[in-house]
């Protein structure tokens, strides 16, 4: 009977470990990451960018971590000088942006990704 109890505890213990890996891991990472914004790229038909508007202030750096969920996308911003990023499915790419002037900037995909490619865009609101 004692063995049976050990066996049951082991099963439960292993299952708890299995379940806790994703949840604890996600929690730990979100603590460590702090202000990093996760931005997922999808074709317009699949929902486009996972966030339509990002907000920041002049001079405050904004960190974005991007990945694609389907095909190769790109990331570029109108009126902001940067080398366009390649956003590959399953891979992560990180960038830090700092804006000098307030206003609304449009970020968009610069790799042709679907018939509605040009509609895959979002806005970064930079407040003074």
């Amino acid at each position: 009977m004692k063995k049976e109890i050990i066996a049951r505890s082991l099963v439960v213990f292993f299952i708890i470990i299995a379940i806790s890996i994703p949840f604890v891991g996600r929690w730990l990472i979100s603590r460590k990451q702090g202000t990093i914004i996760d931005l997922h790229a999808r074709t317009f038909e699949n929902g486009g960018w996972s966030m339509d508007t990002l907000q920041t202030r002049v001079g405050v750096p904004i960190r974005i971590r991007m990945t694609s969920e389907d095909v190769v996308h790109g990331f570029a911003i109108g009126g902001y000088e940067m080398i366009p990023l390649e956003v590959t499915p399953g891979e992560f790419v990180e960038t830090t942006l700092t804006f000098d002037k307030p206003g609304e900037y449009t970020f968009f995909c610069n790799r042709w990704c679907s018939p509605n490619h040009t509609r895959m865009r979002g806005i970064i609101e930079v407040m003074p």
Partner: peptide, 16 residues
């Protein structure tokens, strides 16, 4: 445990 972990990975993890 691995089976349950696999189910969770498929549901929570990357769609890629």
């Amino acid at each position: 445990a691995g089976f349950i972990f696999t189910i969770l990975a498929g549901l929570l993890g990357s769609v890629v």
